[in-house]
Computed example of a mutant assay.
Amino acid sequence: MTGTGIRYVRGDATAPAGGGAKVVAHVCNDVGGWGRGFVLALSRRWPQPEAAYRRWHRERARNDFGLGAVQYVRVEPDLWVANMVGQRGIRTGGKGVPVRYEAIDAALDALSGRAAELGASVHMPRIGCGLAGGRWERVEPLVAARLAARGVPVTVYDVDGPGG
């Protein structure tokens, strides 16, 4: 546990530890792509988050899909996956990295309310810091302020092995 109130562990965020209701939170892009990074681990464990995300994107003209939005997908009786739209596109290029910190902040703000309603703890990898190209030094304060400071228990998972 750091001074932020966030607990760090080695392990798999798709197998969250502890009892009670849990939400596995992760960052998605705003172009409907699902095929690299943490989402592959989610899809190996449950088909519902990918199917829901693809439908949410496909029907975006009629829903809230967009940067900062969150979709909650129940995958087990006391377990949800939060698909948080926090990156613009999927490529790093002339316009910089895909991560959008303001969108992650908005999504975490929404997640804090939902986690409180459910009485749930939140579990995540270092969101926005893999393929999205973000820096944990920028994301951690958002997680601390929006979740941990509001009394939502947060566990961040670092995978074992190279590049983890």
Results as ranks from 00 to 15, higher is better:
Arg55Val: 03
Ala120Met: 02
Val39Asn: 11
Leu42Thr: 01
Leu118Cys: 09
Ser43Lys: 05
Val39Trp: 01
Val75Cys: 09
Gly35Lys: 04
Gly37Ser: 00
Phe38Ser: 14
Lys22Thr: 10
Asp64Glu: 11
Ala107Ile: 00
Arg126Met: 13
Ala149Ile: 01
Gly68His: 09
Arg100Leu: 08
Tyr101Met: 12
Val75Trp: 06
His123Thr: 14
Gln87Cys: 08
Asp64Ala: 15
Arg10Glu: 12
Arg91His: 15
Met84Lys: 09
Tyr72Lys: 04
Pro47Thr: 14
Leu67Pro: 10
Gly113Ile: 08
Ala132Glu: 15
Gly35His: 04
Gly128Tyr: 03
Ala132Tyr: 04
Gly68Ile: 14
Ala15Lys: 13
Arg135Phe: 05
Tyr72Ile: 05
Gly164Lys: 05
Gly94Thr: 14
Pro49Leu: 05
Asn83Ile: 15
Thr14Gly: 01
Cys28Asp: 06
Gly163Cys: 06
Asn83Leu: 12
Asp158Ser: 14
Tyr157Thr: 01
Tyr72Ser: 06
Arg126Ser: 04
Gly11His: 00
Pro162Trp: 00
Leu40Pro: 00
Ile6Val: 15
Phe38Thr: 13
Thr2Asn: 12
Gly18Asn: 14
Val27Pro: 00
Ala82Gln: 08
Gly161Leu: 13
Ala132Pro: 04
Leu111Ile: 08
Trp34His: 04
Leu67Cys: 08
Gly94Gln: 13
Ser43Asp: 09
Thr2Cys: 08
Gly151Phe: 12
Thr14His: 02
Val139Met: 08
Thr4Val: 02
Pro98Ser: 12
Arg91Ile: 09
Arg88Trp: 00
Ala148Leu: 03
Gln71Ala: 05
Trp34Gln: 10
Gly11Met: 04
Arg55Asp: 13
Arg88Gln: 13
Leu42Met: 05
Gly128Thr: 10
Val122Arg: 00
Arg146Tyr: 03
Ala13Glu: 05
Leu131Met: 04
Pro49Tyr: 02
His123Asn: 15
Gly119Lys: 05
Arg45Val: 10
Arg91Leu: 14
Asn29Gln: 07
Phe38Ile: 10
Glu140Trp: 10
Asp78Ile: 10
Pro49Asp: 03
Gln71Asp: 08
Asp78Val: 13
Pro49Gly: 05
Thr14Gln: 01
Arg100Asn: 09
Ala149Glu: 02
Ala21Pro: 01
Gly119Asn: 03
Gly68Leu: 08
Thr14Pro: 01
Gly3Gln: 06
Thr14Arg: 00
